[in-house]
Design a protein around this nucleic acid. Structure first.
Lengths: 219, 219
DNA sequence: GACGGCCGCTTGGGATACCAAAAGTTGGGA
DNA sequence: TCCCAACTTTTGGTATCCCAAGCGGCCGTC
């Protein structure tokens, strides 16, 4: 999900990446403790990089920390997922509308590339590749929106986004929806996008709520 | 703006508050260096709380930090303010529409209270009190929107919001706009709010761009 | 047996000292 | 004037130590 890690990568960034992946991939369950000393020992680093990593993950909204006690992996409630869905809908709609107004041919080509990769992966049943390409589809469009602050905003939410909403089941349905969205984007049809995007996101929302009911994000 | 500081306040929180106020009040200019050792010596703390404070302010978007070199107070460009304004418009509109749909009588009373305080302060020409009440007006409405994620989102942006857009000049015009907004809120008139809020924010946006042109947010 | 308070253990917050690596600065030479 | 190399500054990280605040189990009481 985040690559192998650059050569000159900071220790704190490495630790952040490891803990983030542990959480998203379920190796650290929601509600489980994150004890600085223990993690430092596990990863053979001092407490400092661990502290910074935990702070970073608090910022990404997937860890909860209260002063002078251990931090815990965040547990999401039904309500949290609903609230998050509302916010997500507003932001994504904004992104796609802006992208429809401002995209250029080069950017559009990048979106098409992501779509083609997603479609091919869906056909071959390659789940991971399809999900990755789908995530890239949204990332590239966010780029095309041409608004730095919007990108910063997404940066705050993207980890939660992947954790909660990134695991689609019906790959070809998702690819088909992206095809329709891509067409509206090419036609600069903002009105259609305002209608389509909420529908598109509703699917992932339902899947997230289903997984939540099965106890995937809370203990 | 942030109060006197609780008794059991963490050092890192204290340092964060001091640096934040220094920046917002202009005592540390955009582009100026934030050197850990120097700040630690100034405030009689070790480098640790200073490091955490700088990280926190990076998270709040008012400090820029690159690896292995000093952090600097962020300089906002004309473009940044425009981008920020677009995002702000979308989020605030969402907040007011949700608040219109979901408010209860108790919450409405709190909004009315903030409005009354703002109007009184504006009449008396008390600039600080009027600005504080105006900020509270928006905070309370955000509460009424009843969406935790939205509140988290605002938390990320609120410092920038106050820095860039918090300094209104025409106090009574601002209070009057809040009166109209309050009325629409009471009537649960979401459609009017979708029209009014962008206009309301446009004023602060222009003021921010004017101050930017006069060199208040960049060196 | 349930409840509540006390006490010891755990844990994070902070201080201090030191080191390595990378970035920034400066001055001299082509 | 421009560029490179030496020097300086600064952060990122390690290793220890200490303290105070939470947490949780134990024990006595009702």
């Amino acid at each position: 999900m985040t690559g192998a890690g650059a050569a000159g990568e900071l220790e704190s960034a490495r630790v952040t990446r490891i803990l983030r992946d542990d959480i998203i991939l379920g190796r650290r369950a929601p509600g489980s403790r994150l004890v600085e000393r223990d993690i430092a020992a596990e990863l053979n680093v001092s407490r400092l990089p661990v502290r910074e990593a935990i702070r970073a993950l608090v910022g990404e909204g997937i860890v909860i920390s209260r002063p002078r006690t251990w931090a815990v992996v965040r547990e999401f409630t039904h309500r949290d997922v609903q609230d998050f869905g509302e916010v997500r809908e507003a932001i994504e709609t904004l992104i796609f509308v802006f992208a429809a107004q401002r995209h250029d041919e080069a950017g559009l080509a990048r979106v098409r590339g992501a779509y083609e990769r997603e479609r091919a992966a869906a056909e071959n049943g390659d789940v991971d590749a399809a999900r990755t390409a789908a995530a890239e589809f949204h990332e590239i469009v966010a780029d095309l929106a041409g608004n730095e602050m919007l990108s910063e905003l997404i940066g705050v939410f993207v980890t939660r986004l992947r954790w909660l909403f990134g695991q689609h089941d019906d790959l070809s349905a998702m690819a088909e929806e992206h095809r329709v969205i891509l067409a509206a984007l090419e036609a600069r049809d903002a009105e259609s996008l305002r209608r389509i995007i909420p529908l598109h996101l509703a699917g992932g929302q339902e899947a997230a709520l289903r997984r939540l009911a099965n106890g995937n994000y809370s203990i």
